[in-house]
Each structure stands twice: as C-alpha cells, then as structure tokens.
Write a protein that binds this DNA or RNA. Sequence first.
RNA 1: GGCGCGGUAGCCAAGUGGUAAGGCAGAGGUCUGCAAAACCUUUACUCGUCGGUUCGACUCCGAUCCGCGCCUCCA
Length: 466
Amino acid sequence: MSLRFYNTLTQELAPFAPQDGKTVRMYTCGPTVWNFVHIGNLRSFTSQDILRRWLRYRGWELRHVMNLTDVDDRIIQQAVAAGQTIYDYTDTYAKAFFEDTAKVRLEKPEIVCKATDHIPEMVSLIQSLEHNDCTYLSEGSVYFRITKFPEYGKLSHTHFEGNKAGARVDTDKYDKENARDFVLWKARKEGEHFWDTPLGAGRPGWHIECSAMAMKYLGETLDIHCGGVDLVFPHHENEIAQAEAATGKPFSRFWIHTEHLMVEGQTMSKSLGNFYTLRDLLDKGYAPEAVRYLLASVPYRKQLNFTFDGLKAAVTAMERLRNYELRLTTSKFADGVNPKMTERAKTAIDQFEAALDDDLNTAEALGAIFEFVRDTNTAMDSGEFLAGDVTAARDLLARFDSIFDVLKPTVAGGAISDTDVDALIAERAAAKKSRNFQRSDEIRKQLLDQGVILEDTKEGTRWKRK
RNA sequence: GGCGCGGUAGCCAAGUGGUAAGGCAGAGGUCUGCAAAACCUUUACUCGUCGGUUCGACUCCGAUCCGCGCCUCCA
C-alpha cells in the first residue's frame, strides 16, 4: 500500500503525492506568539514534524511554510499591558518558540513568516475579493460575505442555515450582514497598533494572513494544509473561502488536522491547574526527548491523554531503545552473518514503513521496532546474533530515529567530558581488579551524580548519559 | 441541537470478518561482587451495553450509554 492520509475535506483516507510529483507544498498554522508554547501546541507541531520527516523519508522534497501570528487582540492587549510595542512583545515569544521547539527536535520549516511582514499581500488579497464582489464595508471594517461563496462549510461539513442576508437578522442592528460573515480588515481603534493602507487605517483579521502567505510562498493550490482540530472551524473554513473566492481554484488538496491533547482526562486549562508549558516539564526534570516520544507515540488523529505516569513510561520506553543501541555498539558478537537476522530486519523495516504510510500510525511503527528489539536481544543472548548483523540492526534504528529522533540524549552544557569519564572508568577497573569494591562503587556513584550511568558487562564497562 | 473524534488488560495503545501487536507498571525466574542491562514465564476466555447479519464479529448493520472537541480569533 502506498502513502495515504486522512483528508478532513473529503473525510476519507486517500493516497498522497504532491501535485508536481516532486515537491510537497505544505502550510502549517504556527503559533500565536503571545506566550510560551504549551504541550497542547506541541502535540500539533510534533505531529507535523513527524509528517515532514515521513514525506522526506518517502523521497519527496519539501517546501513547508509556517506562519507566526504576531498581531491579534491578545497580543495587542498584552503588549499594551506590558508597555511594549507589539514587535518587542512578540519577539520575546517568537524566540522562545524556536528555542523550545528545537529542544523537542522539531525541524524548522523551510519558510517561517510573520503576519506583520505581509500586510501588503493581505491587502492585495482583500482587494481581489473586493473586485469579485465578495466583501462589504461596515463601520470602517471590511467583511467577507459568505453568501458569495456557496461552498462555505465544506471543510467542517456544516450546512449553515439562514444564509440569506436580512432574512432572519435585522441587519440594521448588526455590523455584519450575516452572523457567519467574518472580518478581513479591522478598522483602527484608538490606542491599537494599525497600518495605513488603501483599505483604510486598521489591521488584518485573523484568517487573512494564512491565505495570503500560503499562496505567496506556495502558489494558489497547496498540497497539504495542517493545524489542530480546533482550527477546522472557523479558521480553515474561512481561509478556504478567502482563497478560493479570490482565485477560483482549490486552496489545498489535503487538510490534515491533529486531535487535541488532554491532561489527566480533562481539557487542559489554566483554571483547572493542569496547564503545562514545555518549560514546566523540563523544569520538573523530564528530558525533552521523552516529551517528544510521548507526543509522537499516539497517532495524531487520536486524542492524547497526557499524564505524568505516561511521561514516565515514555522515559522508560525510550531508554529501552537507547540501551539496545548501546548494546549494539558496545557488545562483541561472533563473526559471520545470520540470514535469519537479515530477514528479521527486513520484516521490521517493512512493518515500520507500512505503519507510517498508513496515515502516520506511529503506535504501530513503534510496535514493529520493539518487536525487532526483543527478538534480536534474545538472539544476542543465545549467540545467534552475529557481528555481520549489526549493520542491518543499526540501519533500522537509523530509519526509526530519522523520524522519531529520540535516541541521542540532550547533553547539557558543562557536562563531564568523554575522556574524563573514560579515565574514571579505567581507575574503577583497576579498583575492581584488586577487589576494592568500595572505591569502585564510589566512582560509579560519583559519575551517576554527573549524569553518567555505568554498566558492567562481560566485555567490560560501558557507559551512557542519563 | 448540528458537525466531528473516541470508548480494547492497572495505565498508554495497535489491530481486524477467522479467533486480541507493542510499551509502561506488577509477579516469578535466569544472569550478577553490587548495581544496571538483557532474556524467559506470567497478567484481556475478551474488545462500553443490547440486539441483528454470518459457519464465525472486537471487527459489518441498527439501537443505546458514556467521554472529549468544534459550532464567538484555543494546537
């Protein structure tokens, strides 16, 4: 079976290939840079990172655009409260966003773009819509008239009633003709940041930035557009309306949405006290890779229930894989190649690839890896795993890690150097030889305090960082 | 009310018309100066509930209960 994804637009699993047969043009809705990234955000961004990596694994080139929303109501409020310009205010969080996402090893999209750098593009798109008679002016703001876009609702599969202007709503009482109409350009308000444009002084509505920037960098029809499920309506529905009413072409071929994350079975919210930023978790001592592992391990279309027990389980599971890699690289195996092992590795690769091809089934992909690990560990114990089998096993791990990226520990700055570790291990070996176990254990304890774990094996002592 | 996602062992979770992957936790064992690591055995006669279709369903159909999300800028 070929690579396929679930498309929100068609509500079906469909084979995927980029429209030009070469480069995937993908747009993901990035963060609103008004706060530190939380684990709910990170769930979405992690699933998009897995998608990125899998598309490349499958040989496609990638042109991935992600926006930073750096102007909206909250930002304006917060910036005013902090006595800063919106630029200074959002800069802090934009920087923090990339620091945080780098820690959980999210690849940076090929193009990252800020809303405030694309005001002319947005204005121009709104003008196209004006030209197509899809807009109207009300109290200085420009609105999109959804009656001009009959397909409105096709993404969220909603049939909106009462689309006839004035039929059910006394338009005189409202600034919109229809309750579902949405603002493209907001008239300037006293004390708010604004731009002087042909549309008048004001600032962009929420949705227009994505349509404008996506089309600027990716053309009128994207291959994939991603976001969290909460964005299906109204955000993505409105993006479609704006883009398609302007161009007359499909805005995106695939719409891929990540389900929400819950915390201890409940919606994550500040008021429930179960709201966690990545920084909160790292402050509690969890490795960023463990967070990544946990977020990646549940398929993206399933709600993920985040718990600290789950995070601890992720730590252990990840360590199991790292221990396996360590064993693979440090153990000595008898010469030769066991065809059974070669075959076993091939099966694992097939299963791994089939799982991810199937709408990024990460849980099943992990299952394939763990089964392989168990089987080959057993073979190592029994002596059936030979030196010539190491390459195939390492190749599988490399394929796995090119997607999951959790095997290499994050080494803190100022950590003890490899040579110092080796020197202490040598001293400990001497102590052990003279049966000075007190000194031997002392060294192990000392290294442990510095985040280094020693393991004695038949072939000598091996070590790893915590 | 409308739209959508889901209910599988203590927890997380895959799967499928043919008799329940994997991870974590638990129990017992092997190995071991100790500690790890690793392996073995063990933990769902059962897949929310009730009907139906079928030789056979957890998997298909119907009904029903429960959880979650969206339907006013929250990933």
